[in-house]
Each structure stands twice: as C-alpha cells, then as structure tokens.
Design a protein around this nucleic acid. Structure first.
Lengths: 111, 111
DNA sequence: ATCATTCATCGTACAAATACGATAAATATT
DNA sequence: AATATTTATCGTATTTGTACGATGAATGAT
C-alpha cells in the first residue's frame, strides 16, 4: 500500500478514520447488529448467522475488539461478545461532531 | 483479498459499510475539512495543504466523488470540488439510524 | 482418562488500497 | 503557434485486508 502516510495527519483525523475503518466492512456491521439483537452473544451463534468461516468471523471480532467497539469475555470453551456502549457512544459523538463542524461552514462553498 | 463476500450481506449493510469506507482514510477526512473551510475548493489548493502527491490527492477526490460525498466541476484547466450536502446529510442520517437501531436493544445484552 | 466442542491463531492465497512518477489532455498565456 | 499551468489517468510497487483450512489450547462431557 506504499509507505502509509497516515501519521502525517492530525490525531483527530486519524481517530475518526480508524473508527470508520472498523465499520467499513458489511460483516462487521452485521456482527454489531447480531450482538445487539441476540441475548447470547456467543461467537458460535455469530458464525451460524454470517456467511463466513469461523476463522474469518473470529478475525472480524478481533478487529472490533481492538478498536474498542466490543468487549469479549471467556465462558468456558465459549466466548461471549458484547457491544461496548460507552465507547460506541463516544465514537458516534465524535463522528457527529466532525460532521457538525463541517456544516458550520456550509455557506462558504463556491459551487 | 480472497473472493470478497460483500454481496452476501444486506443492501443496508453494504451501503453503510461503503459510506464508512470512504471516510476510513485520514486524507479523505482532511479533504472534507478543506472543502468546508476554503472558499475556493480547487484541487491545487488541496494538494498544497495535504502531505500527498498531486496524483494521490486526485485519486482520493475521485473516490469521494464516486461515493457521492462531493461534487466536481471543471473550471478551465482547473477543477473545483465541493461537498454534496444533500448526500452527506442523508448518509449521516442513515449512519445514525443504524446506531439508534442498535441502541434500542441495549438492555438485552448478556455481559 | 478419553473424546468432543468451541474458539483463537497460524499460515497462506489472493484482492484491494495507497502512493508515486510519468504522461496525456485541456485550457491559459505569451 | 508555442509554451506554461492544471489536473486526470496510467502503470507500477508495496502494504494491508479478506478469506479459508488446519492446527492447537482450553474446557466440557462420557
């Protein structure tokens, strides 16, 4: 991908982009919906619902967890995942904040 | 990327993911900010501000345009870009709508 | 103790994204 | 007409993302 120039941008830009990136795959959006809807947020249950292999789902779960959008706890041989609501609410707030900041300049546009 | 299973998901999931994907790079977030702040949204001006080559900026602009977040008009040898507010507002509405739908299930979680 | 279940991780294959320089096309300028 | 400016596109190199099967580690069941 060439020598990623990601860190040439502001922290805010990087953070917002990172948040967007986690949600930039339909499988991860679908996982969030499953986690919200199912009482038992067991990995196996998610694998049943998604059209993806177990290892692939596990990978997506890892990314969501690394980004902080979900939490995971071990229950015997099973793994239970849930949405990290505090984090999600903050992320959405920041995301909407950026958009509001853009909108403040709305009249300025030339075209 | 292996044989992308993107279309195994719902249209809504694909659309939301596509929107998130366009904003999943700090350069594209930065471009949106420049377009909102500068009266003259000329490509050259953006190239001056971003730490990227002209061809790379042009590529990012193309992606933003393809996704519908911005509009572009030719002005002689120059190109003028602006935010497509109608589209942006709809995208943000859908994105927030998904989050609200998740939140409705908030109590259900097991962990 | 043996076997089954569940899941994370490893290795691997291939697709897509990012970045740049070079070039081409269009318009402005001289 | 010749030259300069501006930007899109092409070709290419490299990195990252997506996907799967196979394996291993941990726990539960027999």
């Amino acid at each position: 991908m060439a020598i990623a120039k990601t860190n040439e941008f502001t922290q805010q830009e990087q953070d917002l982009a990172a948040f967007a990136k986690v949600l930039s795959h339909p499988a991860r959006i679908a996982i969030m919906k499953v986690l919200a809807n199912e009482n038992a947020c067991i990995c196996g249950k998610i694998v049943e619902i998604l059209p993806l292999a177990q290892s692939t789902v596990s990978q997506h779960l890892k990314e969501l967890k690394n980004a902080g959008l979900i939490k995971g706890t071990v229950e015997g041989p099973k793994s239970c995942y849930c949405i990290n609501w505090d984090a999600m609410e903050k992320f959405m707030q920041d995301f909407n904040g950026m958009f509001s900041a853009l909108q403040l300049q709305k009249g300025k546009s030339c075209c």
